[in-house]
Design a protein around this nucleic acid. Sequence first.
DNA 1: GTAAGTATACTTGTATACAAGTATTATAAA
DNA 2: TTTATAATACTTGTATACAAGTATACTTAC
Lengths: 242, 242
Amino acid sequence: MSEHTEFLYPAKWLSKASSGNRVASELRMRIIAGLIESGTIISENKIAADFSVSRSPVREALKILASENIIRLERMGAVVLGLTEKEIQEIYDVRLLIETFVFERLAKMDSTKLVQELSKILEMMSIAIKYKDADEFSYQDVLFHETIIRSINHSYIMMIWNNAKPVMEALILLSMRVRLEERYEDFQRVIDNHQLYIEAIKTKNRDLMIQALHQNFDDVQEKVDDLWMSQQMLSKGVQNDD
Amino acid sequence: MSEHTEFLYPAKWLSKASSGNRVASELRMRIIAGLIESGTIISENKIAADFSVSRSPVREALKILASENIIRLERMGAVVLGLTEKEIQEIYDVRLLIETFVFERLAKMDSTKLVQELSKILEMMSIAIKYKDADEFSYQDVLFHETIIRSINHSYIMMIWNNAKPVMEALILLSMRVRLEERYEDFQRVIDNHQLYIEAIKTKNRDLMIQALHQNFDDVQEKVDDLWMSQQMLSKGVQNDD
DNA sequence: GTAAGTATACTTGTATACAAGTATTATAAA
DNA sequence: TTTATAATACTTGTATACAAGTATACTTAC
């Protein structure tokens, strides 16, 4: 319909990405942000025209989104599923499942190097806040959790993460952008929570780990609430702030 | 090199599959069976020639296998990774993770319908044994677990299953074929174990669930041992039994 | 107005074509 | 013999072409 001159997904993150991944990333953002409504039927040709690419990368993109349960491929066209509140809850079920498993493994390992790496990322996050860079903050936030998960060197846990990551990234990105505008003070709490993560890993304190996890999930719950705001804002169109 | 006239993956299971899925299924079997050794570099063109299809479905297949961590896509060609014992253990970590989660959910649900469905599948498995049909038995075995997982209606748990399923299916298939020849008596124990699953679900007995899980995993451990036998047999070529 | 049947436009799946880049191999120079 | 350079063959990523099938809309008969 209307021309999409603006892209929701940060162009910086796509420097080396293939055309298919670009389309997938942007399409994912538009679907999760509600710009493309649930139930919409999209076809390879339509998307290809939208993004001025051929069907080949679009096919690739749709396969990716289908594996993330964001769309459902059908005989004729693909149905946009989007994310209901149920699915968002489910994503965090999976995160809880994974991170609990990872923590158990971590407790049996030397985590010195990991702690240092996480500290670095946390400082990056602080700087991102300082310069009000929501995208950079989101990037580091996702990287923080990915770094923890990657550290146990478990290919199948990593596989699960890789499948869930893009959707989580999109959720966090949208949420952080809204927060930066409206609830700037939240960021310090996010930082504190991540510091708790590091402490838990450093001391191998299982109770602290669980505390950090739950605190993060409570926080995440708010992110979700924010998300719906951002969805409303983005999909209904924001003339000005009422 | 030599012509591949025989296919490892059951043709029946591919009735409605696309060319890409056919290639992925067969390639997966050959890699896991060790017919294609770890470290081998495969290219889209080579595979396309092997299977007498164009690069389009092959690309699709390689993407699938890469998402399953069976191959690693690189700039020039893809590296066959195969499955080490570590990865096989990791797959069952994930199964344990998922099935434990599912059981927790199941305990809060009415499982009457599920139990009936599982009983049907179990009878199918018995019949498959009776007629010494390893492929059918494997199919029902995988279906049994999928049915349990599907019953809680959790799209992200299902996503994890969908990603791990093909590799597990291949493992089970190869293992059962060997067992049918060499350790026929094992099948009754598998049946008994699955009966335990059903009982645990029916009675919502958490201890029984855990017992069934572990019994199944112990059993699975043997499957894995068998697999290495089958790998040896298949890849080195079987002249006769020494 | 309604039903049946046909034509048309659109869909995916697969094959092929082309472009840009990379590794290898052969050639030539020292 | 070794090193540098150039030619060649092969790789992926993307665009396009073609085929088979499906839904829609139109036409025609009643």
